[in-house]
């Protein structure tokens, strides 16, 4: 991440944060890590942040790593009105 610490956009930062949470859960195995990350985001992110994360899914310019994309997709599913 040479040089990016100070200059992330909000979207980049959200993707970065999700990736960081994933990495800390990675030792559980990918499926469990994704589930734990989704749970973490649901518990700690405000609705605006969640909405932005979900919006990134349909933004062609958003460069989301696969696992982060999987997390945001699950957040979208979980927060969709039942």
């Amino acid at each position: 991440m040479e040089g990016t610490g100070a200059m992330m956009s909000t979207d980049e930062r959200l993707a970065y944060m999700a990736g960081q949470i994933l990495r800390n859960f990675a030792v559980k195995g990918q499926e469990a890590a994704i589930a734990a990350t989704v749970d973490h985001i649901v518990q700690f992110w405000d609705p605006g942040m969640k909405a932005r994360a979900v919006a990134m899914l349909s933004d062609p310019d958003a460069a989301l790593p696969e696992d982060v994309r999987a997390v945001f997709a699950r957040v979208q599913k979980d927060s969709a009105p039942a």
């Binding site: 909000t10 930062r13 518990q43 700690f44 992110w45 405000d46 609705p47 605006g48 942040m49």
Partner: peptide
């Protein structure tokens, strides 16, 4: 019922105009 913003996220949201 939804969690709110943390300080750093408030500042991000401010920069984004929300």
């Amino acid at each position: 019922p939804e969690p709110g913003l943390r300080i750093n996220n408030m500042l991000d949201a401010a920069t984004d105009g929300t």
